[in-house]
Design a protein around this nucleic acid. Structure first.
Length: 792
DNA sequence: GAGTTTGAAACT
DNA sequence: CAGTTTCAAACTC
């Protein structure tokens, strides 16, 4: 497109800009210029979008200009590596902006601090929501902008700005932007003035909003995000969907809105992005190459295209959510996590509707989601929202186990906020499960992760939070040698949350890669080579994911299914809940006797099941034979956890629900929601360094899927069980019983590895082959166990 | 840290 | 669907 030229032009200014403060000042005056270039590039460059994240990072509330600039710049700059970084710097560089930025930073710092210790959940939630909204909005705006270069200028200043920007008209925009920035900054600092300004903005926004909502809702949103006030106004007016926002906004809005952006600015996200951004063009090329390499069989070209456009947005969104948390590491983690979850996030968004700040956004997102599941996620707007959730979900899942120990309060607070949103979504999906609800409730109540952790139900949340924290910690660790860090984490056991891959040939685009398999981006700690599993290569990653999912819809579903846990917990045994879990497909171990991490079941901290085809199974968590793990065994490794595990193993059948998850190709989704349930899974891992990702993911996925389940009839079986389990603990117990019974009933064994397939349930499962494994388990387990149940 | 083992994932 | 190859983690030294 035209972008190359523009990019080149921009590039020079950028360099100057960087070098000379004067340039910066000029830029501040006429930020539009950079923007101009952006529109063109944005249209197709995913990179542009990628740059967006940086924008968020540095979107300081202070200056709309900057934010816009950044956005645009980012878009335009996509090709330019340094640009993104510059953007981040710009805010600080510009005199006016700098002042605001400094304040913002201060505020952000405060915010961070606040968050860390005991940020009120509400605040966190608000922030998260706002962030999510932010992310969502921005991405959408970008998309739309891209999509409609000639986007009509709306009456509202904001829109006009956008339009002007789109048109590449710098002059008009600048003044407005300045004002906006001023307002914003004021808001960030003081509400009173900010409020007034905000109101004005709102008015503007409102005009646009009302008139545009239908048509250019995105644009409006776009604008709003930049303007904290505008954003607020939007939220309050149109959306309010979440009374939360309204309620919260009054109290914290300032902080939240301004704070988040600030956070972003502070956050190294920009740096991260920068890293990513470094080779935007190259990356693109790489991504394309990767796609080829991957064979991107299908990865629906269209999808890819969409991804290209949308991905960046998603990235941004990803970043944004991350930005919520002060720590740069978080951002990283978020980015990483976001991959899969983006998709999930959207779905969540649907579910989150209530949670989500803006109903509008949600609605749009929902629509999107309904139609485009995965693809949709790519869309910026939805992405942002999703991102938050998803990102969290993945990481959390992965981290959850280890994270518990790590537990960073800061992150926790953030995560909590996320959790809140997520849980809500999940809850909506899962609806019934009390466990989740408790979690949600607990979350708010328990500001501290620890508290959360303390409560089993809370555990899931805590896990998430802990994961996030762990993740952060991991990042920190990352700074040092990745491998060492990794080992530390592993050794530490808890720290494991952040896994790091060491892929050399797979480019981290295959399931071989733990990160990729977990739906998270690789991060610094990873020692992978030629890694494409990075936000920069989102399109590639997504495409690859699609491909893999096309082959195996369950490929990204959590390997360990705990779904039952959550449900069952609600029903009866909250305590037991954790235990139930099974490996989705079962292991195929021949030499490890399922006593080593080679065994996915063992690694996941779950007992082997009928599905397993292992030979000489001695899985301490539970043998496929049905023999329950001996106490000694449990003691040996996990003791407490093992106990739970045993229970879990038995419960695994319930986990079948995951199958439903599996069904959902959009596995990504599963990650986040399930987390809540996850806690159970963690147990096993806790003993060891690593928390099996699979478990974490599984847990999350299970929950998530459960939601899907409801949506999808296919899962029916598992669902019904879950539902039942959820509704009535009795059913849940059934699985447990089965498990337990299984042990006693040792006879249950399906000794034959093939047994999985043999399992009669298949017929029932029949709906989807991939699923059958899980279902099979259930069925099998049921038959075998029934006798046992009586015991209980 | 290097090399081996292991089993999942990918491929045929 | 089964067999083989590839891959990266897990493990050992």
């Amino acid at each position: 497109m035209d972008t190359p030229e523009k990019s080149s032009q921009i590039a020079t200014p950028l360099s100057k800009f960087e070098d000379s403060p004067v340039f910066n000042y000029i830029n501040s005056l006429s930020p539009i210029k950079p923007v101009k270039s952006l529109p063109v590039t944005q249209t197709f460059n995913s990179l542009n979008f990628a740059s967006l994240p940086s924008i968020f990072t540095s979107p300081h509330v202070t200056s709309h200009k900057e934010t816009r600039f950044f956005r645009r710049n980012n878009c335009s700059d996509l090709s330019k590596p340094g640009f993104s970084s510059e953007n981040g710097n710009k805010a600080s560089t510009n005199d006016d902006i700098a002042a605001d930025a400094s304040q913002l930073y201060d505020n952000s710092a405060e915010l961070q601090e606040n968050f860390d210790p005991a940020v009120s959940i509400a605040e966190v939630a608000v922030e998260a929501s706002s962030d999510s909204k932010f992310a969502i909005e921005l991405p959408r705006a970008l998309k739309y902008d891209c999509g409609s270069p000639g986007s009509k200028p709306t009456p509202c200043g904001i829109e006009t700005n956008c339009a002007s920007e789109l048109a590449s008209t710098s002059a008009p925009v600048v003044p407005f932007v300045q004002e906006a920035s001023d307002n914003v900054s004021s808001e960030g600092q003081v509400n009173s003035q900010g409020m007034c300004q905000m109101e004005q903005k709102k008015e503007m926004a409102g005009c646009d909003w009302e008139s545009l909502i239908s048509d250019t809702a995105d644009l409006l949103i776009f604008n709003f995000p930049n303007d904290s006030g505008a954003f607020k106004g939007l939220i309050q007016k149109s959306l309010d969907p979440g009374a939360r926002y309204t309620s919260v906004s009054p109290g914290f809005p300032q902080i939240n809105f301004s704070g988040e952006p600030r956070m972003q600015a502070i956050d190294p996200v920009g740096s991260d992005q920068q890293h990513e951004m470094e080779d935007p063009s190259t990356q693109l090329g790489e991504s394309s190459i990767v796609n080829e390499i991957n064979r991107a069989q299908d990865s629906p070209n269209d999808d890819l295209d969409e991804c290209l456009t949308c991905d960046p947005c998603e990235k941004v969104g990803m970043n944004i959510p991350v930005s919520c948390k002060p720590i740069s590491n978080l951002h990283r983690g978020m980015l990483r996590r976001c991959l899969d979850f983006e998709l999930v996030a959207r779905r969540k968004n649907l579910g989150d509707g209530s949670n989500c700040s803006s109903s509008m956004i949600l609605q749009s997102d929902e629509k999107m989601t309904t139609e485009d599941k995965q693809l949709v996620p790519l869309k910026p707007s939805s992405d942002s929202s999703r991102q938050i959730l998803p990102g969290i979900g993945l990481h959390l899942n992965a981290l959850a186990i280890s994270s518990q120990d790590n537990k960073n309060i800061r992150i926790d607070s953030l995560s909590n906020g996320r959790y809140l949103s997520l849980p809500g979504s999940t809850a909506s999906f899962h609806s019934p499960k009390t466990t989740e609800d408790p979690l949600h409730e607990s979350l708010p109540s328990a500001t501290n992760e620890r508290d959360m952790v303390a409560v089993e139900n809370g555990v899931s949340l805590a896990e998430d939070a802990s994961q996030t924290s762990a993740y952060l910690a991991g990042e920190e660790y990352n700074q040092s040698s990745p491998k060492k860090k990794r080992r530390r984490l592993e050794n530490g056991g808890e720290g494991d949350a952040c896994k790091r891959c060491n892929c050399k040939k797979s480019k981290c685009l295959k399931l071989y890669c733990e990160c990729f398999a977990a739906g998270v981006y690789c991060i610094e700690p990873c020692s992978c080579q030629d890694c494409f599993n990075k936000p920069i290569h989102e399109d590639t990653v997504l495409a690859t994911r699609k491909q893999i999912e096309s082959r195996n819809p369950l490929a990204f579903a959590p390997k360990v299914i705990r779904s039952a846990d959550c449900l069952p917990e609600l029903g009866e045994d909250s305590s037991k809940t954790p235990a139930s879990a099974r490996h989705k497909r079962g292991c195929n171990c021949k030499k490890s006797s399922c006593l080593k991490k080679y065994c996915e079941c063992f690694q996941g901290g779950v007992g082997c099941s009928i599905n397993c085809r292992c030979e000489g199974c001695k899985n301490t968590f539970g043998r496929k034979d049905g023999s329950a793990p001996t106490e000694t065994e449990c003691e040996a490794e996990e003791e407490m956890e093992t106990c739970e595990k045993s229970v879990v193993d038995k419960h695994l059948q319930t986990t079948e629900i995951p199958n439903s998850e599996e069904q959902n190709p959009s596995s990504a989704l599963p990650t986040t929601p399930l987390r809540l349930c996850r806690p159970l899974v963690q147990l096993p891992f806790s003993s060891k360094c690593k928390p099996p990702r699979s478990l974490l993911t599984i847990g999350s996925s299970s929950g998530f899927y459960t939601g899907h389940k409801y949506g999808k009839p296919n899962i029916l079986r598992s669902q019904p069980k879950f539902e039942k389990g959820l509704q009535t603990g009795s059913e849940d117990e059934m699985p447990e019983i089965l498990q337990e019974n299984s042990t006693p009933s040792s006879g249950v064994k399906t000794s034959s590895p093939n047994s999985k397939r043999v399992s009669p349930p298949n017929t029932i499962l029949g709906s989807s082959p991939s699923r059958r494994s899980g279902r099979k388990l259930i069925l099998q387990s049921i038959p075998s166990f029934p006798s046992l149940t009586p015991q209980h």
